[in-house]
Each structure stands twice: as C-alpha cells, then as structure tokens.
Design a binder for these strands. Structure first.
Length: 327
DNA sequence: TCGGACCTGACT
DNA sequence: AGTCAGGTCCGA
C-alpha cells in the first residue's frame, strides 16, 4: 500500500533511468488502468509515442512525468500516474527481467508480473511496467496549469506548472514549499475529526491511514479530536510528527506490508516493523505499555493508545484553540 | 459530510 | 460464503 514515502522512493528510482529517454511504444494490457485517460488508448498513444520524458515530479501520491515533443519543446501535458492501493512502477530490461538482482519473481503463482497492466517501452530498451493487482491505480495525461502559490509545483518539478489532474491536491509534508503554520490553521478551522482532516488530500496531501495513525500516536492525540479543538501548537506538533514519520520511512526505503509493495527495482522496504500503533491491536503501546486499541472510524481502522493519546480533556496541557471566555 | 463504488486476494 | 484491506472519486 504505497503511501507518500513509497511514492517518493519510486520517483527517485525512476528519475535517473527514465528522464531524457524517448518513448518508443505503449502497451496497454488492461484498459481499466487507463480509465482516467480522456480519449482512451488512442489519445494516450498519440501523446506518448515519440515524446521524451523530461522530469519526474510528485505532489502527494500523484506522480507525473513532463513530456517534450520530438523537437524538444514542452508538450504542455504531463503523463500522470497514481499507484492506488497496490500499484508498483518497475523498471525492466527488454527481456522482462527486473534490473535489480534479488527482485522476487519466483514461480508463476507468486509472479507479480501477472498483474502487469501497462508498459512504456523506452528507446534504450528499458521497460517501465505498471503492475497493479487491484487496479485502483492508473496512468493518464493531463494538461499543465500554474500552481496556485507560484512555487515549484511539486518535488522534482522544474517549474510551477502542475497537471490539472493534481491541481486540487494540497502540498505534502515532504515538499519544501509546504507551509506548515497555514496547514495547521486549516486543520483548526474545521470541526471534523483530526484524522478525517489528515486524510483529506485537499488540506495536506500524502497522508494515508497508516501514517495518520502513526502521526496521531506520536503527537499523543486521539483520532476523533475535532480539528477546532486543537491549539496551533498541537496542530503543528501533529504535522511535524507526520512529516518525521514519513521521512524516517523514506530513509529506509518505504514501508512494506504483505509484499504487495516493492520499490522501483522490486525490493521491499523495511519500515513496517517500526510502526508504533498501526496494525498493533492488542500489543503494548511502545510509550506507556497499555494495549493498543482498534476502532472503526469513517469505515477505516484507527489504531491508538487509549491511555496516552488524548482528546480534549480539560487537563490537557495545551491551550484550547478556541479559548474559553475569560470570566 | 458521509457512505458506497471501484478492485482482488487473503483470511476466517 | 462472507469479511477485510485501503486511496480516491462521486453522488446522496
């Protein structure tokens, strides 16, 4: 389940081996993977074949390549991708063997390539495979528009141009242009539960269920605390915790569960074992030793420590966001 | 603002 | 046979 660190690992892996290369051919093995492409496979093929990939950028979990036409001019469109729940982008040589030794593709039953949905064939023989068991991911083109704040559109972007398909997505916590104090204020302007707000990609992007639980555990805050009940300080602490957890995951190459996710060369990450709350129902809280509890919130599991993660108890040391009227 | 749809495979 | 997992989008 790729979240932000995994997508950034993929972006970094793709950049040196795809940028500057021309697309020779497109292979669509399952049309559902390009369901978001306006004009279908014909349009996608026309936009890609003969074009050169000039940059790989990312905002939240949306990845995109910039494209240049055969004359070297920017086409004004990006090739966007999203990995959904189970997507992988992997590089292979023309004979279909993953470039990195140790990539686990054993027998046919466990061969991840059976879920290959689309491939880009580059002029040097490199193949970019989009593998996606559950088909929540996709690849499609989108016209470039200016980023609202005028800063670089995302991590890896050469300028402020952003694919329209990602223009509703907020900046993420690995983006140097993210403005934490203003994100914190946006969280506090809403009455919804803080976890709901952290998962809202239009407020802050790149946080999924796993890192939301981890950030709230780090910041000792219950998932159902209303955004409006947070102090600026507490809201900032939650954002900092989320950023730090994701940076730590990035350092070890991304989180890995159930071997569905592998990085761009087919290797799994090793971060899962260092999660504190997510998926640890019944296990002792690493901070206070009490049992981690699981509750369903918004049709998603929330893992938290009822003993050391607080809501808005009157004894909370942080000042409430909306200060009580003095009397 | 919330629930369902989209998907598949692993698990009970 | 039924349940669960989860990111994003859409519609009630």
């Amino acid at each position: 389940m790729p979240e932000l660190p995994e997508v950034e690992v993929v972006r970094r892996g793709l950049a040196p081996r795809t940028v500057g290369r021309r697309i020779q051919d497109l292979e669509v093995l399952d049309a559902r993977i390009i369901r978001r492409q306006v004009g279908g496979e014909d349009r996608l093929r026309a936009a890609l074949v003969g074009s050169t990939l000039t940059a790989v950028a990312r905002r939240g979990k949306f990845l995109w390549w910039r494209l240049a036409d055969p004359d070297g001019a920017d086409t004004g469109e990006a090739l966007m991708g999203h990995l959904g729940m189970s997507g992988q982008l992997r590089l292979a040589t023309a004979d279909g063997i993953a470039v990195t030794p140790g990539a686990d593709s054993e027998g046919p039953a466990s061969d991840p390539l059976r879920h290959r949905r689309l491939s880009l064939h580059l002029e040097d023989g490199t193949r970019v495979d989009l593998i996606d068991q559950r088909l929540f991911g996709g690849l499609w083109t989108s016209p470039l528009v200016p980023a609202a704040d005028g800063a670089l559109a995302g991590v890896g972007s050469p300028d402020a141009l952003l694919p329209e398909g990602a223009s509703h997505i907020a900046r993420d916590l690995l983006d140097p242009a993210a403005d934490l104090p203003s994100i914190a204020r946006a969280l506090r302007a809403r009455r919804a539960a803080i976890k709901t707000l952290l998962l809202n990609q239009e407020i802050v992007s790149g946080i999924g269920n796993i890192y939301a639980d981890e950030a709230l555990w780090e910041a000792r805050t219950r998932f159902d605390t209303p955004g409006a009940a947070l102090s600026q300080r507490r809201a900032l602490a939650i954002l900092r915790a989320a950023g730090e957890v994701m940076e730590r995951a990035l350092e070890v190459g991304g989180t890995s569960f159930d071997a569905l996710y592998v990085n761009v060369d087919g290797r799994s990450g090793y971060f899962a074992r260092s999660l504190s709350a997510y998926g640890r129902t019944g296990e002792p809280c690493p901070r206070c030793g009490g049992p981690i509890r699981r509750e369903v919130h918004m049709n998603r599991s929330s893992h938290f420590c009822p003993r050391c993660q607080r809501g808005t108890a009157p004894s909370a040391p942080d000042a409430p966001a909306i200060s009580p009227r003095p009397r």
